[in-house]
Design a protein around this nucleic acid. Structure first.
Lengths: 135, 135
DNA sequence: CAGAATCCTTCACGATACTG
DNA sequence: CAGTATCGTGAAGGATTCTG
């Protein structure tokens, strides 16, 4: 078939786009990192307590559903950013801890967090100005 | 009414949670920053070209819908991270540029991007190991 | 060119219930 | 305690059409 339907062209454009993105190695990880639960878990685990139990994390990130918590923890474990350790007590004890790789990312994330805290007021002021000017 | 329904308790718990989160100033900004389009726009604008037109951005971030692009640009402008300049040519020309505030965040984001590129292989290896061990 | 407005889909996420 | 499994929904986001 020489001619292509609009749907086919769209499909190909999508593929070409994906291929292009795949050639940009940072993109995949960037998408994964750009997740608020990832940021919060990394922040929690990089804090004062080197390792935390599931229930501790659950409390620390108050508001997270266990589904999202488990899901995010799994993906972080899969990527080698955290370790999951099961201690066969009764009931079972599970602890999570940053790997060296995870720690290195935590450092950077911490910078972002600091930036947010440092410039929060400035941003709020900017928003007020914008809103009044576009009222 | 002295007693509360489960729905009411949930609503209150949600408010309490929101209040708690509001007391953490970094949280709001963190959520906004933890967005892949934000990261990509900041990366694009912080690159070689100091200012970019709407269409340039649209091409550079191939795959982004104009809805998401416009929406994200607006919020960044509102927060004072970028400026929007309209030049009344025919047709109209609109350029976007990082503010000093936006530039400071860009620096940090750039670190994250570099991290992602540097550790991409390691992460992919970790994923393979995880997948084979959990096959 | 640079959007605004609308419709429509999907899927991310929360709520709930169950288990080793 | 630390999850897994299932279901239902709302809201994010894409496609499309229209405009100054």
């Amino acid at each position: 078939m020489a001619t292509k339907t609009a749907a086919q062209k769209r499909a190909q454009a999508k593929e070409a786009y994906d291929a292009f993105m795949a050639s940009c190695p940072s993109r995949q990880l960037l998408d994964r990192i750009s997740d608020k639960w990832v940021a919060l878990i990394l922040a929690a685990l990089g804090g004062e307590s080197p390792s935390m139990r599931y229930s501790e994390l659950s409390r620390r990130l108050a508001g997270v559903s266990q589904k999202m918590l488990t899901q995010t923890l799994r993906s972080l474990e899969r990527d080698g950013l955290i370790t999951r350790t099961v201690t066969p007590t009764v009931p079972v004890t599970v602890t999570y801890e940053l790997t060296d790789l995870g720690l290195s990312l935590h450092q950077l994330m911490y910078g972002i967090k600091e930036w947010a805290e440092a410039h929060m007021d400035e941003v709020l002021t900017n928003r007020d100005n914008y809103d009044t000017q576009h009222a």
